[in-house]
Design a binder for these strands. Sequence first.
DNA 1: GCAGTTACATTTTACAAATTTTGTCATTTT
DNA 2: AAAATGACAAAATTTGTAAAATGTAACTGC
Lengths: 200, 200
Amino acid sequence: MAAPREPSEMRILSVAGEHLRQHGLRRFTVVAVAEEAGMTHANVYRYFPSRTALIDAVVDVWLKSAERKLADIADGPDPAEDKLERLILALAKANRDLLHEEPHLFAALSQAVAKRHAISRRNRTRVRALFERVIDDGIATGAFEPRDRDRAIAFVIDATHRFIHPASLELEADVPQASVDARLATLIRVALRTLATGVI
Amino acid sequence: MAAPREPSEMRILSVAGEHLRQHGLRRFTVVAVAEEAGMTHANVYRYFPSRTALIDAVVDVWLKSAERKLADIADGPDPAEDKLERLILALAKANRDLLHEEPHLFAALSQAVAKRHAISRRNRTRVRALFERVIDDGIATGAFEPRDRDRAIAFVIDATHRFIHPASLELEADVPQASVDARLATLIRVALRTLATGVI
DNA sequence: GCAGTTACATTTTACAAATTTTGTCATTTT
DNA sequence: AAAATGACAAAATTTGTAAAATGTAACTGC
């Protein structure tokens, strides 16, 4: 899907990634990125239409890489129950790890989500599609028997929201990971049981 | 519990409430509140130790009033299932209505929560206690049979987080209320069923 | 002694000028 | 023709400073 990027474009993107991770959104300037990439800032605009677009491109690289891991899970040969559990855990872990290991990049993602940038809306749509696929898979194999498929999908997303959405993760940044993991495990168990027993 | 406030303190609090609702956090000044209350700003400090404390006091009035409604539900004679459902609905509705009807006050509450002010921590503790009471009630009457009481409480709070926490409510400010209501109803149904059937 | 004020030091905020950055485009370079 | 630059207007940020607000304490009148 992604067009093969030219070397200059790649270089800019890579330098921009370093800058964003190291200095954060506020200190991120097109001028500084261009200088470190060995060109004038005007040339950056040949490849990225705006500062915001460049930042979004950096975030998008991370989002796409996370999506690939999720897609691998969703497309695997395992039972839908296992895949749904691993999908939720992987998504929660990816975001939570980003919060702790790359706080500046997390902040940029968080802002893109809050301001509903195209990259985050599209990511949301694609991730949601993965959930739909796995749940449909489970319905097809009889593992899940919800009365209303759409309602079941919304339920899973709403119930796990606390452990997945950047805005919610920030709230609990200092809660011990083990405790969060235990609570998420409970929630997943309930969600799987709910899908299996047709309560919805 | 609350000490009977002196007339001046009440007057300041009431004027501060109007100012906060009308002008918002940014334009809220102790000088303006004092002037409208017919005194100099220095006198305000006889009753409230700081601007922040005054704002928190205004938010606390609202929190306490919301808590009373919740306590009425929790202390009622109805079955624990009904009470838990109404508790969640009332809490979600109180916060959501505040967001739409008093956006400035909502913003002040949101900030107090984000910055973990004492008023919000205590409110959280008391609201949590209401949930615990109702769930314990349900366990005592046999309506709920969770394997682990604490885990069950955490589960209910985590699962409904999306519809209750200010930070999450802001995200969906523009989603039609009917749609949100339907999703919350689903979540409540699942939570009640889960508590009843001892999955946790 | 209590409610309130006046006076004042400290901290924020508001605003204007200077500087930097963003974004565009004609021109140069390869 | 594609890649890059220099020059420039518009927008955003920073800097310095005046004004306002916050917060303290000594003082006044009841």
